[in-house]
Amino acid sequence: MSIPEPDLNWLRSNLELVVFCPEVSAGLPTPRAPAEIIAGKGVDVLKGFSKVVGNDGIDVTTQFVAGAKNALELCLRLQICSARRE
């Protein structure tokens, strides 16, 4: 889902936009295989009960958790108060 152009223009004019890909920050390449949480939710991954696995069968849990931590650190450092997934 993309942001309509008038809204994006407003955002660009009124806010500082920060583009960030957690997975890339943790070392995953682009393009890469789509990945899904297996048998659980995000919190289960963080607790070590579930894994994130690509449709190619590769476990990318470590990279996804590292990317989430990187994103949190960036938000805290820059005092980012809103995020959107694209």
Rank of each mutant, 00 (worst) to 15 (best):
M1G: 13
S2R: 15
I3G: 11
I3V: 10
P4A: 09
E5F: 10
E5H: 10
P6I: 01
D7I: 13
N9G: 09
W10P: 09
W10A: 13
R12D: 13
N14E: 13
N14P: 10
N14K: 12
E16F: 11
E16H: 15
L17I: 15
V18R: 14
V19M: 15
V19P: 14
V19H: 15
F20P: 08
C21Y: 06
V24I: 10
A26L: 01
L28H: 00
T30V: 07
R32S: 08
P34E: 09
A35I: 01
E36M: 09
I37G: 03
G40A: 01
D44T: 05
D44V: 03
L46G: 00
F49S: 08
S50K: 02
S50Q: 02
S50I: 00
S50M: 00
V52M: 01
V52G: 00
V53Y: 04
G54S: 06
N55W: 11
N55I: 11
N55P: 02
D56Y: 03
D56G: 00
G57D: 00
G57E: 01
G57C: 04
I58R: 10
Q63G: 03
Q63V: 04
A66D: 07
K69Y: 07
L72K: 08
E73C: 04
L74K: 03
C75K: 00
L76P: 00
I80D: 02
I80Y: 03
S82K: 11
A83K: 10
R85I: 06
E86Y: 12
